[in-house]
Structures are given as C-alpha cells and as structure tokens.
Design a protein around this nucleic acid. Structure first.
Lengths: 251, 251
DNA sequence: CGTCCTATTGATATAGGTCAACATCGGTGG
DNA sequence: CCACCGATGTTGACCTATATCAATAGGACG
C-alpha cells in the first residue's frame, strides 16, 4: 500500500482510472464509483478496500446510524435516499439533510454521530470498516479532500435550507422541496420532468418545519395552479422547473 | 472608513524569530494562535505567512465578503463577531451562521462565496493573500485538516440551527440564541454570567427567522420570568444557564 | 370485506406577523 | 448644558398564515 499519492486533481484520478480500466470488477460497475469519494483512490487501494467492504440493502424506514450512537462503519450510498434528522426531547423532529448516491455516510475523527441517518427509500449502501477508512484517510490527502469537499457541499445545502426554514412561506417551502428532489433524485439526469417522491408527507413536513396537513394543502394548491401534476400521491410531474423555481422564491 | 491596513514589521518579526526559534512575535501574542488553524503550521510556515499577512479592523456593519463576490483573501477572526447571511431576491434575509475568534473566514478551492460575511460588532481580522494560503493548504495536510474540522463544526452548528428554525417556538428560539451567545462570546470563558449581545434586535430576528417585534416581546417575557436580566438593551445577565437551556428546549 | 396506514379536506384556534404609536439612547450642534 | 434628531427598541391592537383537531377518503393487504 506504499507511500502517499502525489497530490493530483480529482478529475485526473477519474480519467486515469477510466483509461486503465483496472480495479475490482465490483467497483467498475459501482454506481458511486464516478463522482464518489472512491474516485480519489488508487487501484491498489480500491482493491484492498473492496476486499473488506460489503454491499447491504437497507429497507425504507430503517436506521443506518442512530443519533448519539458510536459508529464502527462508514458507507457510500449506491442508490436510494437517506434522510438525516435530529429530534428534540419531546419528540419534535427536523430533517437536517438528504443524501443521495454517491454520497459518503460517516465522519472520520468523530466518535459518535450528531444526527440519525435513516433510509427514506429502499437503499443500497457499500459498507466499509471504520479502521480501514481511517487509515486510507490519513494516507491519502486526496481522499480526505473529497470528504472535505462533500462536507462543504453539505454545509452549503444546510445554509440554503436555513434560509428556506427561516424565511420562506409554506408554499415556497413545498416548492423548494419539490425543486430539490427534482434536481437530485437522479444522479444521471440533472432534472427529470417526472419522478417519485422519496419522502412521505410526514417526512416532507419534518424537512420543511411544517405539519402534514399544511404540506398536503400546499401540494394540492400547486396542483390546482398547474405547477405540478400528482399521480398516486407519490408520483410528481413538473411541466416547468423554471416556474417551480420561481414559486420557490429562488429568484 | 475603518479597516485600515497595518503592514507588519517584517524585519522585526524575522529577527525575533531567528533569535527565539519560536515563530513570529506577532503570532505568539495572537488571539487566534491557539485553537485556530495557525496552530497546525510549522514555524517557518508561520514566518512566511506572517510576512504577507496584515491586521485589519472592520467596523460593525461592514462587509468582509459579499455573497457571490470573488474572494482574493482569507482571514482569521482575532476578536469580535462576524455574521454570515443569505438574502432572497425580495430582500428577506437569514443569518446562517455566526463566527467568533479564532474562526477562519474563507474557503479554499472555491471561487466565490455563497454567503455574505459582515462584521456584527467591531472586529479585528488577520488577512492572508489567497494564493499563499492555497499553497500552504496543498503542502500541509494538517492545515487542511484543521479547515475540514472547522467546516464540520460549522455543519453541526448549521444543523442544530435548522432544528431551531424549523421546530422551536419564538420563546425557545430567543432562549436558544441567548444560550448560544453566552457559550460563544468569550473564547476564554466558556459561559460568562453576563455579556453584551453582539447583534441588534434586527440581526437577532434575521438569525431566528422572526420579526423584530417578536424578538422584543420574547425578550421582555424572558425578563419578566426572571430567566434573564437586561440593561441598556444590549447587556444581558443570565442567572442560570441551566434554566436558559431548559427554556430553549435543549432537554 | 374489514383493517391499517397514508393522505386529503374542513372547521376552528393561535402564534407570530403587520402596522402604528411611543420610548429610549447616543450623538450633534446651538 | 440642553434641545433636537435619527436610530434602535418596546408596546399595543389587530390580522393572517399555519397549527390543531376532527372527519373522510383511498390504497394495500390480509
């Protein structure tokens, strides 16, 4: 496992790997391989990581990490949506982030999680032992940089959402949520016209700081205004993302 | 026009360093030296950084970095409080973070800021040229790790605040704010009984997603309930941090 | 065909927003 | 030193967006 990688650009690492067409077969077809943190690893590192990692399915509603729990593994999201949430002593809950493939779950240099991570939809993750990742992190500045970049992305998203929570109306909040999902649900397609909501009304309410009833009312209002089309409660079509953005107050 | 640049005496700093082998004199007395990102730098790195850095005063209300502006410098907060905020097209505003000494302002590998940074109080910062920090970052994994750690801390704070914004009542919000200030205003003393609020009522409202009037009403309510004592609008005494925490809904 | 679960819809209550008057403070200039 | 001023904060009266409570509807599944 030799010395440190020389500092290289992330895209270079990606390109090099594609050119060489090497690495574990599993990783080659991995949904998280491109764009995910693994993109910063060398082929030998990938091979070793692969030896000790395993795929796991997590059904909707199941916990990946509990708030305050100590964590012995990290993982990559391969598909599905994971919600991060916080709860107050009296049960009030707030979803503080949604993670999509190929996001990395877990935080090196931190014993226990400050949030609960729960599968919002049926989800597949690639699970890594903590000690191995910790070693790779300390050996591979590029890998740590990928994690740093992800945490900065999450920070930006959290702050955007603070604006939504603190200053937007219920209608703007619901539109913001739909816009967020439309632009994140499919890693391949930046903005599909049509998709399934990964969250129940209750989850949406917890994400937006609203009640279920208000979410429901605003959804029907958006439907009646022609901003969205809803089928079977979960399936949504957005005729114009631009109009949705506008309703969301994003310009 | 505050914020005048005061170049540091390079020769003097160098001379002292050579004699004492302990880093630049300025840094030795720096408020941000311990606990700040500079703590991860070697003495030669400190010397070089010091050569190109300068102290600057920023008066309350002045911008440090504008939202969407490109950034050519980074800085460390030496004292004072900096507020990070986002604004919607129609003027609605949300403060998305407060930074205290010895926090680092700015983000390597990112051209323009996604938030506005503005001095909430009169503030002193230590300004570094962008290119130099970028080089030090790429050469010094420990330094980058400090930045990573800070961004994780900010992420945790942002998520805590999302819970506050989304799920707490006005009274809990105001109490949460007072608790936050009490525990952060003084880097020396974790929780002073008495302190000056670094933010105006308008800023507090923008931080809590409330109106000025509601903030004011909740402050007087907390005062009448004996949770806090207020003098001159800005000076607050907290008889029991524990009681305040409780009102804030933190247990 | 009921049962459970999720979502919608309606009626009503209320926390917090809005608008307006007033108070307090710190500065400035006569 | 006082009078005036603008900026900042408080208080009151009222209003509205959203919460709450309650009833109904629609699927999924046995």
């Amino acid at each position: 496992m030799g010395g440190q990688m020389r500092p290289i650009d992330i895209m270079d690492a990606l390109k090099r790997n594609v050119l060489e067409c090497e690495g574990p077969a599993v990783c080659k077809t991995c949904e998280a391989r491109h764009g995910g943190v693994c993109a910063s690893l060398s082929v030998p590192q990938l091979v070793e990581l692969n030896k000790h990692s395993s795929r796991r399915k997590v059904e909707a509603g199941n916990e990946v990490i509990g708030q305050g729990e100590s964590v012995s593994t990290y993982s990559n999201i391969l598909n599905g949506v994971v919600k991060l949430s916080k709860m107050m002593a009296d049960g009030r809950q707030q979803i503080v982030g949604l993670q999509f493939a190929p996001d990395f779950l877990g935080r090196p240099h931190q014993e226990e999680s400050t949030v609960t991570a729960e599968a919002a939809t049926d989800t597949e993750i690639c699970v890594f032992p903590r000690a191995l990742i910790d070693r790779i992190v300390s050996e591979t500045p590029d890998f740590e940089r990928m994690l740093y970049e992800q945490s900065l992305k999450e920070l930006d998203e959290a702050r955007d959402w603070m604006l939504t929570l603190g200053r937007k109306t219920a209608q703007e909040k619901v539109a913001s949520f739909l816009h967020l999902i439309a632009t994140h649900i499919d890693p391949e397609n930046a903005s599909p016209r049509t998709f399934d909501l990964p969250l129940s009304r209750a989850d949406i309410a917890d994400f937006l700081g609203l009640t279920i009833e208000t979410v429901s009312r605003q959804m029907t209002k958006l439907r009646k205004e022609g901003i969205i089309v809803i089928e079977n409660n979960r399936h949504v079509t957005v005729p114009s993302l631009e109009r949705l953005r506008c309703v969301a107050g994003n310009d």
